[in-house]
Simulated assay, not measured.
Amino acid sequence: MIVSRSLPAQASHGSGGIVAPRSAADAEPGGGASHWALRVRVTWPERGVVVVSVSGEIDMASLPRITEVVRQRLTAARLHTAIVDLEQVGFASSAVLELLMLASNAAGRREVRLLVVPGTGRVSRLLELTGLSALFEQAATVDEALAQARE
């Protein structure tokens, strides 16, 4: 079972969120999630701003889970900015492009500003290789994205 939990901004990095087990060993207590286990953490660092941080793999298997979390958070009543943090993504297939396009469309319908933190790894490279980098408002870090959200 996958559980989504919204966390206050001051919550510790190791609690809450979504962990999608890839194998029976990952699902067992004490089995430990490996470096590729999908993790989605949602925080509300300030009023009207949500940060959805993703780590692990983004592929066609994980896309529905991540998309659902992002969709749910974009329906918040008083949301003005959504930040999608992909800095800790270890593997990104073309599914990450679909995720960002869906998030962008949903944000546009709600008139919510979408900021993407692609990091310096695979997501950033994929955006550059496909020429889609210019479609998304980006920030180098979550802190930078929060500063942009305040503007």
Results as ranks from 00 to 15, higher is better:
Val54Phe: 12
Val51Lys: 09
Ala147Ser: 05
Arg113Ile: 01
Ala107Asn: 02
Arg109Val: 11
Arg150Ser: 15
Arg113Tyr: 08
Ala107Val: 00
Asp59Ser: 11
Leu135Asn: 13
Arg113Thr: 14
Ala20Ser: 12
Leu102Tyr: 03
Asn105Glu: 15
Val89Trp: 03
Arg150Trp: 02
Ser94Asn: 07
Glu151Leu: 08
His35Lys: 11
Ala61Asp: 14
Gln72Tyr: 00
Leu97Thr: 13
Glu68Leu: 05
Arg47Leu: 02
Ser62Pro: 04
Gly16Arg: 07
Arg78Glu: 13
Ala77Glu: 15
Val50Thr: 15
Ile2Gly: 00
Val70Ala: 07
Leu102Val: 12
Ala103Ile: 03
Val84Ser: 05
Val51Asp: 07
Ser104Thr: 02
Val50Glu: 03
Arg5Thr: 15
Gln72Pro: 00
Ser34Asn: 09
Arg122Leu: 04
Ala33Trp: 09
Arg110Trp: 01
Ala11His: 02
Pro29Ile: 10
Val70Glu: 04
Phe91Gly: 01
Gly31Thr: 06
Val42Cys: 09
His80Leu: 01
Val3Met: 03
Val54Ala: 08
Thr67Trp: 11
Ala149Leu: 05
Arg22Glu: 08
Asp143Ser: 14
Glu128Val: 11
Val40Asn: 09
Val112Asn: 03
Gly14Trp: 13
Val96Phe: 00
Ser94Val: 12
Leu129Ile: 14
Ser55Gln: 08
Glu144Trp: 00
Ser62Phe: 06
Ile83Asn: 01
Ser34Ile: 04
Ala134Trp: 01
Ser124Gly: 15
Trp36Arg: 12
Ser104Ile: 00
Leu115Pro: 14
Ala92Phe: 08
Gly16Met: 11
Ala103Arg: 09
Leu7Ser: 04
Arg41Asp: 10
